Simulated assay, not measured.
Amino acid sequence: MASLLLAGGGTAGHVNPLLATAAVLRGRGHEVAAIGTPGGLEADLVPRAGLDLVEIDKVPFPRRPDADALRFPLRLRRAVAACVRAIDERGADAVVGFGGYVSTPAYLAARRRGLPIVVHEANARPGIANKLGARLTEHVAVTFPDTPLRHAAVTGLPLRAQIEELAATLADPAAAADASRASRAARVWGEDVPVLLAFGGSLGAASLNAALADGIGDLVARGVHVIHLTGRGKAEGALAARAALPEADRHRYEVEEYAHDMASLFAAADAVVCRSGAATVCEIGALGLPALYVPLPHGNGEQALNARAAVEAGAATLVPDADLSGARLVAEVEPLLIDADARARMRAAARGIGIADGADRLATMIEGVL
């Protein structure tokens, strides 16, 4: 069996795929440790998953000619040296990078020691670190087709175990119906009504929150049950909209700031409206859920690219953030919830492109290079 170093950190988009892949590799008998920074999410999540964390300093690429740019070469050399020490001390056989600040020094250290490098890119538009990594190896895994990296092979995104398990359940029509009924019964008091799940991530999405609060009266009037995750500290507008509903209908609009058990909410949902981060798009696709995506309007446009394959396949629709309103949201999601035939077509399209076993596929690629 092999000793493997997995590098990725800073955000959940880097850390969660790393942990999902580590779990599969350990299950196959390999020794796995992670490289990360003391200030990123990995400092908490990696040890909690039972993995050793090799800490290195954060080395962001300089964006402008300033003092940080002058210090960058020395910081990078120190980070590479720390990664080389980790490789030597653990007798690593390969390095796997998931992007982010920590991956660059890990890739350079692996090249210095002549080790195989495997790159996994979560987004349709790759980051700087993985653009570099892809120049150093022929073993490049991507989540989305048409990701512009050399030697790219589509493996999908390594998903959390509970999402993989739910995807397997929902792939069986009888089991899916039982899971949906059981989950819905607890939330909708036994009513057999369509359920819309809306969320904007842990921080919420102000435009999505406002549009849903504006359109909730129409959705409830059409018999839709809505579960709305507003983001921490951002429930005020939704709660006010709920209070304005007729008292008999208020139970149809559930407002929560955050949910720790997203799998149970996905099981209850007939359709989803949300942002289109890579993990979100991949989880929804693997689960076969029709979706309305409202990409984050900031950054480099990667969220719109993440959703493109699902939209082109007919598994989802997309509304630019600037065009979102209560009326537009209702018009877009109503067919997904009310029209059973349309929903079935979108579910089939989602399952046609969704990949639920991304962690297994990536682990197999890693084993193939050893």
Rank of each mutant, 00 (worst) to 15 (best):
A263L: 00
D68I: 03
A307M: 10
V195S: 04
Y107L: 14
R78S: 13
S207E: 15
A348R: 15
P173G: 09
T317Y: 06
S202F: 07
L136K: 12
E164N: 04
V195C: 10
L108M: 11
V96T: 04
E283T: 00
Y258D: 09
T317K: 14
A12C: 11
A122R: 10
A86M: 11
A168Q: 08
S180L: 04
G114T: 04
L132Y: 01
F98W: 00
A331Y: 06
A304L: 11
L115E: 02
A176L: 00
A177K: 02
A304D: 00
I227G: 05
A186K: 14
D88Q: 07
D192S: 07
Q303D: 14
A92W: 02
G40A: 12
L197Q: 06
P105E: 06
L41E: 04
E312I: 04
A109N: 07
D249A: 15
C83F: 00
L287D: 03
D57Q: 13
E138Y: 03
R308Q: 14
V281H: 04
A22Q: 00
A124D: 04
H228G: 14
A327L: 08
E247R: 15
A175G: 07
A167E: 09
R232D: 11
T21V: 11
R232I: 13
G36L: 11
S264L: 08
G9C: 05
W189Q: 15
E257I: 02
I35F: 00
G27F: 03
V195R: 06
V59P: 07
T137W: 08
S202L: 09
N209P: 06
G127A: 12
L245P: 06
A327K: 14
A7M: 04
A263F: 00
A79L: 10
R275G: 14
A322M: 09
L19K: 01
V294T: 01
V154K: 11
A110T: 07
D323Y: 02
D57S: 15
S180I: 01
A268N: 00
R181F: 06
A213K: 02
I366T: 01
P105Q: 08
I216G: 11
A309C: 13
A129S: 15
L41R: 10
I216Y: 01
A134D: 05
A171S: 13
L208E: 09
L239E: 15
P126Q: 03
P145S: 10
G100Q: 08
E302H: 15
V154M: 11
L74T: 07
P60A: 12
N300E: 15
L4A: 02
V142Q: 12
A179V: 08
L208F: 05
H30Y: 00
E257K: 08
A248K: 14
A315H: 03
G114W: 00
G215W: 06
K234E: 07
G50Y: 03
R113W: 05
A12I: 07
I216N: 04
F98M: 09
L245F: 06
G36C: 10
A124H: 02
